[in-house]
């Protein structure tokens, strides 16, 4: 069991879905010689996620997955459409949204000379958590994610990627997010670390009742963890349904075949980056 969080969940608008995205559009300008051209990263994407649900978005590199996560993380402004998190407008009420979310991305993103405890400690302060709340909570959470505590005071740069990713999960959990945004959290991890991270995600949902948006290009991971799977291709959300239904819809036996049937390309084929 995860340790009981010392912090209560922040408030959310009663009855509102965890995520409501409507006709969301994002473009980037790309320089090509003397000219700039517009590249559409997301094109009129609409979906919603219920509270406590886990939704996986599958897509190739450059399909718009990270742009979607960054929009919901308040790191980008939209070019059209809307997005709400627990009823709050992501672009007009970012502070309210920021209190409800946290994120784990493919890069662990830490001050590499600082220790795990130092990185978690200052980050918790940004979420209004006091030292007396976090001094006991940080070692507990690190232990729970399988991080060896004897490494917790050494520089992060001396840790393996798997260990760094566990610290990233601990950082996200420390703030008790109501919505956890996972942007390829297991990419590049060894099989054992991958399984540990996946088990931890299940436990976060079970114990903390968190809603999870998982962007990945790992089909097995999506099928194992998510109630519904979406396919994002060239900025467009082609479908969003339970994996079994997707297989039925595309008359395929595997999710991989369903992805190919929906997009005409394999998941591991690269595309041009959207940013």
């Amino acid at each position: 069991m995860l340790p009981a969080s010392a912090f209560s969940h922040p408030s959310a608008v009663p009855g509102a879905p965890a995520v409501e995205v409507f006709e969301l559009r994002k473009e980037f300008r790309r320089r090509e010689g003397l000219h700039r051209r517009r590249v559409t990263a997301l094109n009129a994407v609409s979906f919603s996620i219920e509270r406590g649900e886990c939704v996986a978005i599958l897509g190739q590199n450059g399909s718009g997955k990270s742009t979607l996560v960054r929009l919901l993380s308040t790191l980008l402004l939209e070019d059209g459409g809307s997005a709400r998190v627990f009823g709050y407008d992501v672009f007009r009420e970012p502070r309210r949204v920021q209190r409800l979310i946290n994120r784990v991305s493919v890069e662990a993103s830490f001050f590499k000379r600082l220790s795990a405890i130092e990185n978690l400690s200052y980050a918790a302060r940004f979420y209004g958590l006091r030292r007396r709340e976090t001094s006991a909570e940080i070692p507990r959470i690190l232990e729970r994610v399988g991080f060896p505590l004897d490494r917790a005071t050494g520089p992060m740069e001396d840790l393996s990627r798997g260990m760094q990713q566990k610290v990233a999960l601990a950082r996200a959990l420390l703030t008790s997010p109501a919505l956890l945004l996972l942007d390829e959290p297991t990419t590049g991890l060894d099989p054992r670390s991958k399984l540990e991270v996946q088990e931890f995600i299940r436990e976060v949902r079970r114990v903390h009742d968190a809603t999870v948006l998982l962007c990945t290009h790992d089909l097995a991971e999506a099928e194992k963890l998510a109630e519904r799977v979406g396919i994002l291709h060239r900025g467009e959300l082609l479908c969003l349904a339970p994996a079994a239904e997707l297989k039925r819809r595309y008359r395929t036996e595997t999710l991989e075949q369903a992805f190919f049937a929906a997009t005409g390309t394999a998941l591991d084929e690269g595309e041009e980056a959207s940013e």
């Binding site: 993380s73 308040t74 209190r99 830490f110």
Partner: peptide
């Protein structure tokens, strides 16, 4: 450079 910019700017810190 450290890669923490997104985490800092998405935190609920004014």
């Amino acid at each position: 450079w450290e890669g923490t910019i997104e985490h800092t700017f998405m935190a609920p810190l004014s």
